[in-house]
Amino acid sequence: MIDSIFILLILSTFRMSLPLMFATCGGYFSEKSGVAQISLEAFLLVGAFTAASVSFFSGTLLLGYLAAGVMAALFGQIFCIFTLKLKAHSIIVGTALNLLVMGLIPIVSKSVFDSTGSTPSINADNVYYALPVTILIVTITAAFWLSNRTIWGLQMKFAGEKRLALESIGVNPIIRQWQAVTLCAFITGLGGAVLSTYLSSNYSPLMSAGRGFIALAALIFAGWSLRRALLVSLFFGFCEALQIQLQSNQLISSRIPAEFIQMIPYAATLLALIFLRAKNNPPAELR
């Protein structure tokens, strides 16, 4: 009995950390290139909605993932135009993008599906369980390779650390930032697709439930290091798994109110910020 609970908990930890890991991975690129990114939430939502509706209409999940990434990258362009081209503050633009997506999705789903926000569920037979894990492994490998082994990665990091150095060798830091944010949106969109096609079988309103912000917290917490950030997001995934397990447990859910159990991931983030010494090592020109 106890064994099976632990195995369930571990399995569900991996399941719940998938979208977080995608979002952390995406956020890493944007933050490292010196663009503060709080619209991870928006990219997750866009990805989730696009993946759910494209897989519903086409019947193939892979197409859904691809569409989610591309659509999120398109929304990333809005972010880029306003922060990089028009020089608005990234936090303000990020907040506005979050609002835009929260308002846009219900209206789109009303005119497409005639529903109040959720999409019809996709055919469960098509759900292919190894797909998201494969995509995650490919993404993480690619992310490590890109950021540590390529010239592009070095230049991307310098856009966040010292723009002047980049300009002096004739590379426009804005172009590197633009590419990094687009990549960030694409990867985070994939995470959204995991959310709506793997963790559940349809899109429901605001289903990202703050995961974008949790991913950002994981990144800040890990001192902007990708390896540590992925481990931290595994921990936050554990908190979410714990929350789900506790809620389904009769004995515990009758004693502790559901609202407190739902608080666990957010409270864990706050407690982690309070009790653990965060590595404070932000990119020098992060703004």
Partner: peptide, 25 residues
Amino acid sequence: KFLTRDFSLILQAIIIFSVASSYYF
């Protein structure tokens, strides 16, 4: 027929975008 009260959120977002970028112009 098709617009819901969520249109208010879109309106705010677009206003924030355009006001924040108007300084640039």
